[in-house]
């Protein structure tokens, strides 16, 4: 049975979504002609550019995070599919202000290849491109295989920090340094309760039994670490927290940012109950929470479930994380 969604022609979901997104930005972003990419309308000259992107269907990631002190532009792929080199290249040209471009995206084979091809094209044009791949999903691979880890909800904090750095710092080397530090300090893990579906096929991306959950499932239904029986919120939170804390590892005395992300269809009530438990665990371990964000940042269509992200902070990361910002998907006064 096809999933129930209110759509027009499912083949047009991405272009129609972009049109709606641009309008929801009230003039602060524009769509490029003939290309599925959006860019800020008020880009300062000489700024180090930040271009993000990836498959659509994860709104507000990525294209919802274009704005002041966030990304300068986003290359939008089709649902769950990386944008083509052409889209990335055109978006990059549109955001470039003569001071180099930082590419920031999730570490997936498709994104890596398409952004790399675009990067080679830009280098042929003499443009300096630096690539940062978000690899925060601890469930995807053990720490010794970081390159096999995917990018998930940590994208938000990465875009926030690198967006701030690319606004305040004028040297692309410095922006890259901050980005690499942030990327090394962030860890996430999720749990899926029920699947989402791709609009064009109407088919669920995986199957999960009535009373089953999958810990560590990826943002496209990639298999996680374990499929298990539905359990109380505190037990699930304990399990996720344990996997996160021992991975970096996080220690007593650390200061962190905590992000609890709705994968699409989970209630805010459930998320807050999980937040309550995570805060108890962090307090017990003497880990202080500098800031917390509980909301919907990276979705997988109507997938139910949530993810938890922890980022270890220092003064510099705190500074960039706390800068005011203004984008459709995340605003900070």
């Amino acid at each position: 049975m096809a999933a129930k969604k209110i759509l027009n022609d499912p083949r047009n979901v991405v272009s129609e979504m972009i049109e709606g997104l641009v309008l929801a930005n009230d003039g602060r972003v524009r769509k490029l002609d003939g290309v599925d990419a959006i860019v800020r309308t008020d880009l300062p000259a000489g700024k180090v550019a930040l271009l993000i992107g990836g498959g659509s269907g994860h709104e507000p990631v990525f294209h919802g995070f274009v704005g002041a002190n966030m990304a300068d532009g986003a290359a939008c792929g089709q649902v769950f599919a990386a944008p083509s080199p052409e889209i990335v290249y055109e978006a990059a040209k549109a955001v470039h202000r003569g001071n180099g471009i930082v590419f920031l995206y999730g570490n997936y084979a498709g994104d890596n290849m398409n952004f790399d091809i675009a990067s080679e094209m830009l280098e042929d044009d003499g443009i300096d491109v630096r690539t940062i791949r978000v690899r925060d999903d601890v469930a995807a691979a053990p720490p010794e295989r970081m390159d096999d880890r995917r990018g998930v909800a940590g994208d938000l904090y990465m875009i926030k920090i690198v967006g701030g750095a690319a606004t305040e710092l004028t040297d692309i080397d410095e922006v890259e340094r901050v980005a690499r530090k942030a990327e090394a300090a962030i860890r996430s893990i999720g749990v899926a309760v029920s699947p989402g579906s791709i609009p064009e096929t109407g088919k669920l991306t995986f199957e999960l039994g009535e009373d089953e959950i999958e810990v560590g499932m990826g943002a496209h239904g990639e298999a996680g670490v374990s499929r298990q029986k539905l359990a109380p919120a505190d037990d699930v939170a304990d399990q996720l927290a344990d996997a996160l804390l021992r991975d970096l590892p996080f220690h007593g005395g650390d200061e962190v940012a905590l992000l609890i992300n709705n994968l699409g269809a989970t209630t805010m009530m459930e998320m807050l109950i999980v937040n309550r438990r995570i805060r108890q665990i962090l307090a017990d371990r003497n880990i202080s929470v500098h800031r917390s964000d509980v909301g919907t940042y990276l979705t997988v269509q109507e997938m139910a479930g949530f993810s938890i992200t922890l980022m270890k902070l220092d003064a510099e990361l705190k500074h960039f994380l706390d800068l005011p910002c203004d984008s459709f998907g995340f605003k900070q006064p």
Binding site: Q78, P85, A109, G110, N114
Partner: peptide, 11 residues
């Protein structure tokens, strides 16, 4: 390459 998207488009 320009219209498929994803890993498949690149490969």
């Amino acid at each position: 390459m320009s219209k498929t998207g994803g890993a498949a488009g690149a490969v």
